[in-house]
Design a protein around this nucleic acid. Structure first.
Lengths: 197, 197
DNA sequence: CAGATTCCGTAGCGCCCGCTATAGAATCTC
DNA sequence: GAGATTCTATAGCGGGCGCTACGGAATCTG
């Protein structure tokens, strides 16, 4: 018994379907993306979708996990690879300008925009917690620089982290309103002008 | 004939109802606020709502107009009353921190958040245009300072305006994620650190 | 091949959406 | 008062929502 797959095999690529679902949720948000939108763009029937992914909520959770690994972990890398918090956040903002406006996928950030104004509070809370994680990651990196004497001792690490996240959120929305990569890069550069010297 | 009202008089205060509708749309957004949500919180039946306001879309348009007069025109005043664009935008950001976190109404800005992820593209476009108006207002004020020699000739007025709006958007979302007035004021103050000297 | 297993397509469930037809209640003019 | 007018309350329309029962199709094991 070699645990060969029994029964009729799935007729679609689960990972490819997950990617398509990600693009749909990214563009229209959690609630405004209906099951029939999904079945249409994934090219499968509703029962296949439910068999493969559970329900809409669990599909979205999987989408968020894939999205996180592909489009938000770059920030963690930038913060750990650059020599200072300032250099790291400059890189985060610059790379975000590129990602938010990449024509290969919908504009902006799914974690920021996909659960605004949703009636399902648990989904909104899940993405809120992801943003909170980013905030704390920024804050920790800044605090490390303060401890190391790279930033002034009087630096308000939490406020600075919050400022960086606010700029990211603003950039995400502006990309969804049609701003170009160059325009967002200019915003990022200006934002770094606020960095403590 | 003194144009006295004929027929049965309306049993509710139209302006008060509009205010309640504003709070509902502000908190939950355009699409996530259902007609039955509205009839429940306004305390009237659906036919009365339709007779008084037309349909959901027109009610929302009225709400946006009222909201604009009450919560966004302060920015116009700040920009015209303060002596420089920098002082004006500092005041805009500080006042926004107060408005976005005022416990008398839902957090954040209705124009920024009420039509994210909606299937009704025309509503999204209407609010997008309102944001664009703010952007251009900021840009004009900055340009005036550049022309007057208050700001360096090399100042990128559009980018600076876009940066200010991005910070406002970020502040709005953070207030909806639970940030306090003091936290947003700190963000505003940091943002002004990026202002050209 | 038979039988077990798993997936797919149709068709439809109950529910809520925005909206309204209809009839009665409340106020006007005359 | 009578009649016209306007609003309110009930009740329900067509349609889309998330989700699933069911039977047939496709692949396994033996």
């Amino acid at each position: 018994m070699v645990t060969g797959q029994r029964g009729r095999p799935r007729s679609f690529d689960r990972d490819a379907a997950l990617d398509k679902a990600m693009l749909a949720f990214w563009e229209h948000g959690y609630e405004a993306t209906s099951i029939s939108d999904l079945t249409a763009s994934l090219g499968i029937g509703a029962p296949s979708l439910y068999a493969a992914f559970g329900d809409k909520r669990r599909l979205f959770d999987e989408v968020v996990a894939v999205y996180g690994g592909r489009y938000t972990d770059f920030a963690r890398a930038a913060l750990s690879e650059e020599p200072t918090a300032g250099a790291g956040l400059r890189r985060v903002l610059r790379e975000a300008a590129g990602i938010y406006t990449d024509p290969a996928h919908p504009p902006g950030c799914l974690v920021i925009s996909a659960a605004v104004n949703t009636t399902s509070q648990d989904v909104a809370q899940a993405l809120r917690e992801r943003r909170e994680v980013s905030l704390e990651m920024f804050e920790r990196r800044i605090r490390a620089d303060v401890a190391a004497g790279v930033l002034p001792a009087a630096t308000d690490a939490q406020a600075l982290a919050r400022f960086a996240l606010a700029v990211l959120v603003g950039m995400s929305q502006q990309s969804r309103d049609g701003a170009s990569r160059e325009e967002l890069e200019a915003v990022a550069e200006l934002a770094m002008g606020a960095w403590p010297r």
